[in-house]
Amino acid sequence: MDLVKSGAADADTKIDGALRSGTTAKWSKYTMLCLHYCREDQSHVARTVPECRALVREYKI
């Protein structure tokens, strides 16, 4: 779960950098929307990890 959380944070940082860069003027509207949606998905993953961790800790066979 820690790897998922750090991976989501890394992806968010890269997407943020891409969105802030000057190259975005060259990208299509579709590409920009994909980046925004991807960033939103990554933030949901990062927020879900603590809940998943709690569920795993409580799980008993």
Rank of each mutant, 00 (worst) to 15 (best):
H36R: 15
L19K: 07
D12E: 01
E40Y: 15
D41I: 10
L3F: 12
G17R: 10
G17V: 06
I61W: 08
L3S: 06
A46M: 01
H44I: 14
T31F: 03
K26E: 02
C34I: 00
S28F: 00
T31W: 00
S43F: 08
Y30G: 02
G17C: 08
R53V: 06
V49N: 05
K26N: 02
Y30V: 01
E51F: 09
G22T: 02
R47H: 09
Y59M: 11
D16F: 03
A46V: 01
C38Q: 09
G7M: 10
A18Y: 05
A18M: 08
D16S: 14
L3M: 12
G7P: 01
E51Y: 09
K14L: 11
L33N: 15
A8P: 10
V56G: 00
L55Q: 04
D12A: 09
M32A: 05
A18N: 03
V49S: 05
T23M: 10
A8I: 09
T13I: 13
V4R: 00
E58K: 05
D10G: 14
G7L: 15
A25N: 08
G7H: 11
S43A: 15
S21E: 00
P50N: 06
L3Y: 12
C38I: 00
V4C: 09
G7K: 13
A25P: 03
W27F: 08
V49K: 04
S21P: 04
T31Y: 04
A46R: 00
H36Q: 15
E40G: 10
G22M: 04
S21H: 01
D12T: 08
R47D: 12
R53M: 03
S28I: 02
A54W: 03
K60R: 11
Y59F: 10
R53D: 06
G7E: 14
A11K: 07
I15V: 08
V56F: 07
A25W: 06
K29W: 02
V56T: 09
S21T: 00
K29M: 04
C34A: 08
V49L: 03
K14A: 11
M1R: 02
S28Y: 04
C52E: 12
S28P: 06
D16Q: 12
D41A: 10
D2A: 13
L55Y: 01
C52Q: 10
A8C: 15
Y30E: 00
D41Y: 07
T13H: 12
V56P: 02
V56E: 11
V45G: 03
C34T: 03
R20G: 11
C52Y: 12
C52V: 13
T48F: 09
Q42A: 12
S43K: 15
V45S: 05
Y59H: 11
D41C: 07
Y37V: 14
S43M: 07
K26W: 01
M32L: 14
H36Y: 15
A8E: 09
D41R: 05
T23A: 11
A8L: 02
H36K: 03
A8N: 06
E58D: 13
T23D: 10
R53E: 03
L35V: 09
D10M: 06
A9R: 10
L33M: 15
A25C: 10
S21C: 04
A11H: 05
S6A: 03
K29V: 11
L55P: 02
C38E: 02
K5L: 13
D12K: 09
K29S: 06
T23I: 10
Y59D: 11
A11E: 09
K26I: 04
D12P: 02
L55I: 08
A11F: 00
A18S: 08
L35H: 11
A9E: 13
L35T: 01
S43T: 14
K14F: 13
